[in-house]
């Protein structure tokens, strides 16, 4: 366990270093990027990705994957918009929107845990279903005329930080504490680390997996609430394509796709970093269409670099423990494939 903690710390530290380097470069090119107002704007615009990445971490930590979050966010946003336009009071609307994510997550979880559909297939299928359901629900039209009181929430500030930022940070800290300090939270790591082992020591594996997907769904709904608040209307393509960014953010932050390793703080940092890249381009006077190239390149560099690093750490730690000998025998080659098989379960 101490090794894993050490590893997690290393991941978080390495992304912090990369981020600091990036900030220094961007700041050197244009000092305006480092002013308080642009940084708080940056935090505000990274909250959607951050919330989604937190939810995704649960699923990734249990060793599954959820690619349906983007469409869940889209449908939640559409429900949110429709209810607001029809004058449903705030709390009732929030409850209904969160229920959308909860139910979708539950369906995903049951499919994966009960019917043993590989997670990527289940959520890929749900991606199509939910996206279609959203378009049927909205009739293919954009939802506009969101009441002003709701849109104004996006400009509420406390202590210099935006309301959305506070929501994101509070959720992140609470979930981090739950995951690391409670038995309930450690169940997720146990299931992701070793399903059979978790089952044998009597953990409710199915329930844990279903819960992970439900958290992911709820996080998508939270993101949708903030999306509607910030944007003020709901286009048809809300959230499409964001699922891959979310996974990229979580991976960037050190959450392993093989399960059992990662932290929501790391995932959150990854989300902020990805947003930093895209929003710093304006300040560096780089055309916006460079965004994907730079994000993809940095993602590859960080992930490959980190894989090499953790291989090194693994080799060192495995010498100390007699249980880890098979890992050494394994060599490096083909490791990724053996792992990928697990990932896609």
């Amino acid at each position: 366990m101490p090794f894993i903690i050490k590893l997690i710390k290393a991941r978080e530290v390495s992304i912090m270093i990369f981020m600091a380097a990036f900030f220094i470069i961007a700041g050197a090119i244009n000092p305006e990027f480092l002013t308080g107002s642009s940084l708080s704007l940056l935090l505000k615009s990274s909250m959607i990705l951050l919330l989604l990445a937190i939810g995704q971490s649960f699923v990734l930590i249990t060793g599954d994957i959820d690619v349906s979050v983007g469409s869940t966010m889209g449908l939640s946003a559409a429900v949110c918009g429709a209810l607001l336009v029809n004058g449903i009071p705030f709390w009732g609307m929030c409850l209904a929107v969160l229920m959308v994510g909860l139910i979708i997550g539950f369906i995903n979880g049951v499919g994966v845990a009960q019917f043993r559909v590989p997670a990527i297939i289940m959520t890929l299928g749900m991606l199509g279903i939910i996206r279609g359901a959203m378009l049927i629900f909205t009739g293919g039209k954009w939802i506009e005329d969101i009441p002003n009181y709701y849109k104004k929430l996006s400009s509420l500030d406390f202590l210099g930080l935006n309301l959305a930022v506070w929501i994101g940070l509070v959720i992140m800290v609470i979930i981090h504490l739950i995951l690391t300090r409670t038995k309930f939270g450690r169940n997720f790591f146990a299931v992701g680390d070793n399903v059979e082992g978790a089952r044998m020591v009597g953990l409710p594996v199915k329930r844990v997996k279903i819960l992970a997907f439900m958290f992911s769904g709820i996080s998508a709904s939270f993101a949708a609430l903030i999306f509607v608040m910030n944007i003020g209307f709901i286009p048809n393509e809300t959230g499409s394509g964001i699922e891959l960014q979310v996974i990229a953010a979580a991976v960037l932050g050190g959450v392993s796709l093989t399960g059992g390793v990662g932290s929501v703080i790391g995932a959150g940092l990854g989300a902020v970093f990805l947003t930093t890249i895209s929003s710093s381009l304006v300040y560096m006077k780089v055309p916006a269409y460079w965004n994907n190239t730079i994000s993809g390149f940095l993602l590859l560099i960080i992930v490959v670099g980190d894989a090499k690093l953790s291989q090194f750490v693994k080799n060192r730690t495995s010498r100390k423990s007699k249980f880890n000998k098979p890992v050494e025998l394994d060599g490096k080659e083909g490791d990724s494939h053996a792992k990928s098989n697990k990932v896609l379960m």
């Binding site: 994957i65 991976v251 190239t293 993809g296 990724s336 990932v343």
Partner: peptide
């Protein structure tokens, strides 16, 4: 990258997906 670094294929191709669509 997949064969020689030991990073999971999903992560690698996710990265290159951004990279290629960006290019």
């Amino acid at each position: 990258i997949v064969a020689f670094t030991g990073v999971q294929p999903l992560v690698v191709t996710l990265g290159t997906m951004f990279l290629y669509s960006g290019i």
